[in-house]
Design a protein around this nucleic acid. Structure first.
Length: 684
DNA sequence: GAAATCTCACGTGC
DNA sequence: CGCACGTGAGATTT
């Protein structure tokens, strides 16, 4: 998961990644580097040479030797570039830029890298205007043009150039938090400077202009910190993590220069099924760009062998690896797409076809063997859903027996156990005794659906004037308490402020894990902030005292808001929008009223969610009126985008030490098997 | 000649 | 359905 975690400071000179980059063997020859020249396919758009003969060596533009097929090989290393760039003083950047001993050994170089070198602009301009002692790194042209104040945030120069898992996650979290906030403002039309039409672009652009991005150093092959199977919901997300630089175009390429010549080489593509691309498992037939196909008011023309098309052609000849991102229709949101990073492919064939009387380029991409499944898994899930093939190990198609509006599968494909111990499925909370009527509550007066930004809606006012969810039902931010509309509100059941009370939205599966009993995961991709389920069960009355306490202590299926939980940051940073920070820090939320729920005998899917020290789900108290009684609910939301079939986990927290009477609390602690790099070892 | 600036192509997401 | 948008490469200007 967190492999390669963070160089936050200057890495040692033996550092792997930078070496690769620095140790660029200039491409002296434009011919592919194959063991035998006789095996080089001729430069024609012809049939491929099929499976490569044994002894075929993958072509690595950066390398001298061949490492494992999935990894860029690493050679002996000169001092990393970083060492010269780690300080941001003009002197050091000049040293880097001017020292031709460094990159001057290259009579050719990757233009992309040079361009990606963030200090290039400032160091060169400093040469011209030495008075400019601005130590801020130079950013994009657009950023400079708009004279945006450069705010470096907590992304170091090193992380900006080359990412790792942690940095990629952090950048994506910050992107989505900002995006949700901008969507919220857009929904409420509270933006004075005109309406934001594209919150995704706005958020992405803002982050990138402030240097909150990673993997700016463009390269062929894997991108550090982005894993096969990772999912994205916006094209601009691919830009901020450096997986695919163009915000629109489907083909990303570098210009590879030689002393005599230069040519484009493809590094990544984004395939959208609607573009006429044929997709099946490990094969992808990709169409070239240009030609105005499928555009309403434009005449189709021949595609030209230039730009992306030329890059693909050259990549076909070179046999270099190309990252493939597959765009798939989002089941939860059919108007938009999910982008799945499907790993490295090579082009095996290239040809032209006729379409509407014009030429169109076609490329056959074949997936490199030995990579974890990603897109292929989506295909399987699709087949399960359509009933064409059944899920292996399926025990029950719906363990809720219709109690939820979406079936929940029960699956065991690891051993012979036929299901979890008996319990009664119930989708919500049960209070053992009736609630006091001391706090009568009143709903809003909205007639059909509460409108974001409506100052008259009392439910919105209870949320400090902010509608808690975006228009597509995603939670905007964590709060001590979210107020949803309830039965006393006259608004429709489909009011957007009823997200957590309207039941499951993703197809969940209770499955047998290899070492942690039963667990919960989803067939559908889940985007950050999506409601997953609530914690159902019987509310334990703490007033029962000792008896109740013992009851809770022997209960593995208990949820308790009063435990100690790791703090974490999920909300947007007000400073990015030049807003004042609110007083209550997200890290120190106080739970409004204690709530203990037992799901031992009665509960829903939430009782199967396991603990993790690096969870992908968090819980959030939600309140809505229920027959004039205040009922608190615990709703679970996705911390980040969760690819299908990824186990859903949350932080179980730990018991208060002062509650540890004798060794009982200690005994209750369980060895944690979450496997994350920051695992605390025990939980409970 | 090189750097700064402009223009164009590329679809997406609402 | 039509609008507005960011990026990188190449063209053009300074």
């Amino acid at each position: 998961m967190e492999a390669g975690s963070g160089y936050n400071s200057v890495p040692p000179s033996t550092s792997f990644d930078k070496s690769r980059v620095l140790d660029v063997k200039p491409l002296r020859s434009l011919k592919p580097v194959f063991p035998s020249a006789s095996e080089i396919p001729p430069f024609v758009c012809g049939p491929p040479n099929g499976p490569f003969p044994s002894g075929f060596t993958p072509f690595y533009p950066f390398s001298v030797s061949q490492g494992s097929p999935m990894q860029m090989p690493m050679g002996p290393v000169p001092t990393p570039l970083r060492a010269f760039r780690s300080t941001q003083s003009p002197e050091s950047s000049r040293a880097f830029d001017g020292d031709d001993g460094m990159d001057g050994n290259a009579d050719g170089y990757f233009d992309g890298q040079k361009r990606g070198a963030p200090l290039r602009g400032s160091s060169s301009s400093q040469r011209k205007t030495p008075k400019n002692r601005d130590t801020k790194p130079s950013l994009s042209y657009a950023a400079r043009k708009a004279s945006v104040t450069v705010f470096v945030g907590d992304i170091s120069q090193v992380d900006r150039d080359d990412g790792n898992r942690e940095v990629v996650n952090r950048v994506l979290m910050r992107f989505d938090a900002l995006r949700r906030r901008l969507s919220q403002m857009e929904d409420a039309k509270e933006l004075s400077n005109g309406i934001i039409k594209r919150a995704d672009l706005k958020a992405g652009n803002l982050l990138m202009s402030k240097g909150i991005r990673t993997n700016m150093r463009r390269k062929i092959g894997a991108v550090s910190g982005v894993e096969i199977g990772d999912i994205f919901f916006f094209r601009i997300e691919l830009c901020v993590v450096g997986l695919h630089a163009p915000s629109m175009s489907g083909i990303d390429y570098l210009i590879v220069r030689d002393a005599l010549d230069q040519e484009p080489v493809a590094v990544s593509i984004v395939s959208s099924a609607e573009y006429g691309d044929v997709e099946d498992g490990d094969i992808l037939i990709y169409s070239g760009q240009g030609g105005n196909f499928g555009k309403r008011d434009k005449q189709a023309t021949d595609q030209k062998l230039e730009r992306g098309n030329l890059a693909l052609e050259r990549s076909f000849q070179r046999g270099n690896e190309i990252r493939v991102v597959r765009g798939i229709k989002d089941v939860a949101n059919p108007a938009s797409k999910v982008y799945v990073y499907d790993g490295l492919y090579k082009i095996q064939e290239s040809w032209t076809e006729r379409k509407s009387g014009c030429n169109i380029f076609k490329y056959k991409f074949v997936r490199m063997p030995g990579q974890p499944v990603a897109f292929a898994a989506w295909k399987s899930i699709q087949k399960w859903k359509e009933g064409f093939s059944s899920r292996v190990g399926l025990i029950l198609p719906d363990l809720t027996s219709g109690a939820e509006n979406i079936p929940v599968s029960l699956v065991n494909d690891v051993d012979g156990e036929k299901g979890p111990a008996h319990f009664t499925y119930f989708p919500s909370l049960k209070y053992s005794k009736s609630f006091d009527l001391t706090q009568p509550s009143f709903g809003c007066n909205c007639r059909n659906a509460c409108q974001p930004g409506d100052p008259d809606c009392s439910c919105i006012r209870k949320n400090e004037g902010d509608f808690p969810y975006t228009s597509n039902g995603v939670l905007v931010g964590r709060k001590p308490l979210i107020h949803e509309c309830g039965p006393t509100c006259p608004c429709f059941p489909n009011c957007k402020n009823r997200v957590s009370q309207s039941g499951l939205k993703v197809h969940l599966e209770v499955f047998k894990t290899t070492d942690r009993g039963w667990g919960l995961r989803s067939w559908d991709p889940i985007r950050t902030g999506t409601f997953i389920c609530e914690y159902a069960g019987i509310v334990i009355d703490k007033g029962k005292g000792k008896q109740g306490g013992e009851e809770v202590e022997n209960d593995e299926y208990v949820f308790d808001t009063t435990r100690v939980y790791n703090s974490f940051k999920w909300n947007y940073e007000p400073a990015l929008l030049e807003e004042e920070s609110s007083n209550d820090s997200e890290e120190e939320y106080k739970i409004p009223s204690p709530l203990i729920i037992s799901a031992k005998n009665l509960g829903n899917v939430a009782r199967f969610m396991n603990h993790s020290c690096s969870p992908n789900v968090f819980w959030q108290p939600v309140l809505y009126e229920h027959n004039n009684q205040s009922f608190l609910h615990i709703a679970f939301f996705a911390i980040r985008h969760i690819p299908p079939m990824t186990e859903l986990t949350y932080d179980y927290g730990t018991a208060h030490s002062d509650e540890a009477e004798g060794s009982s609390a200690l005994n209750r602690k369980k060895k944690c098997l979450c496997g994350s790099s920051n695992c605390h070892g025990y939980f409970g």
